[in-house]
């Protein structure tokens, strides 16, 4: 008897699930609306949550209709992908880890499964099990889709922030007529040092700066790679006709550099930005005079 059923209705569990999803659309959406995932995302109105749930059920039915229950790239998911991404993002913002969001998604399965079993009271155990398995696979695929979307979102965010960081982290400051400074903060890798070099050289041309100060107070470690980047920047600035001074080398870093045998060659170095500025002003023939020595008496 079970064999006959399996033969006669090939792929029927999928069709059964599809029909069930379309038939019970309203009830499933109602039950989902009470689950923590939907309740937490749609705080304003329950109707909205029900609508969102219906959309997801429709998408699942469409995927089942296309016989692609295991395919996260199935066409049916594209309509709800954005909505799912929004839900996932909302949960992540609420401080949930990816695993927690995933388990919240898993909690969507039991109510649907119970409904399905209730719908198949007189089906053979084999058939019922096949239907439930199909549904589980479908819900699993939904989980994969949400996770995939969340990860893509996260990656896009990281990429955007990295670009922003590149722009934000390399300001070129005009200290005086003909003097520009770049305070470097954070680890200096190839991509960043390239940006630093380009922005610095552009600033040198724009402001006709004869002196440029590279302040590395905010660079935590100086290894041979960083030293090489510094040398390149200094050499490029010199080729354009500007003199480059490296400042902000802390005692510990100076020690490390000597231990590593790093040679900054002909690069002029000063211990602090103030020292570097003093040196440059002297070179330009500019002096700063304090008219009231020792900072004015009365206070």
């Amino acid at each position: 008897m079970p064999e006959h059923e399996a033969d006669g209705t090939l792929g029927s569990p999928t069709d059964e699930v599809r029909d069930f999803l379309r038939r019970r659309r309203e009830q499933i959406a109602q039950r989902w609306a009470d689950e923590p995932l939907f309740r937490a995302v749609f705080t304003l109105s329950r109707d909205e949550a029900v609508e969102a749930g219906k959309a997801v059920v429709d998408a699942l039915a469409q995927v089942a209709d296309a016989q692609r229950v295991e395919d996260p790239d199935a066409a049916g998911f594209t309509t709800v992908r954005e909505q799912l991404a929004r839900m996932g993002a909302a949960r992540s913002r609420a401080g949930l880890s990816t695993a927690q969001v995933s388990s919240e998604l898993a909690a969507l399965r039991p109510p649907v499964e119970n409904l399905l079993l209730a719908d198949l009271p007189d089906a053979s155990p084999d058939h019922a099990r096949a239907c439930v398995t199909t549904l589980s696979v479908l819900m699993g695929t939904l989980r994969v889709v949400v996770m995939q979307t969340a990860l893509t979102e996260g990656q896009a965010l990281i990429d955007r922030q990295r670009l922003q960081l590149l722009e934000v982290a390399t300001p070129v400051i005009k200290l005086w007529d003909g003097i520009v400074a770049v305070p470097l903060i954070g680890t200096l890798d190839s991509a960043r040092s390239q940006v630093v070099m380009e922005t610095l050289l552009e600033a040198i041309v724009d402001q006709q700066a004869r002196f440029a100060i590279l302040d590395i107070t905010g660079v935590p470690t100086v290894d041979s790679l960083v030293a090489q980047h510094l040398m390149k920047t200094v050499a490029a600035a010199r080729l354009m006709g500007a003199e480059c001074i490296v400042s902000g080398i802390r005692p510990a870093i100076a020690q490390t550099m000597v231990h590593l045998g790093l040679d900054l060659g002909t690069v002029i170095t000063r211990s602090s930005l103030a020292d570097a500025l003093g040196y440059v002003l002297h070179q330009l023939g500019v002096g700063i005079v304090n008219p009231t020595p020792y900072g004015a008496g009365e206070r």
Binding site: V205, A235, A237, L239
Partner: peptide
């Protein structure tokens, strides 16, 4: 030598020609 462009300076340095 006067007025070298930034792009030219970067290229020369990357080529290892620092023209000391």
């Amino acid at each position: 030598v006067v007025g070298m462009r930034p792009a030219v300076a970067i290229t020369l340095v990357e080529l290892g020609l620092t023209l000391p």
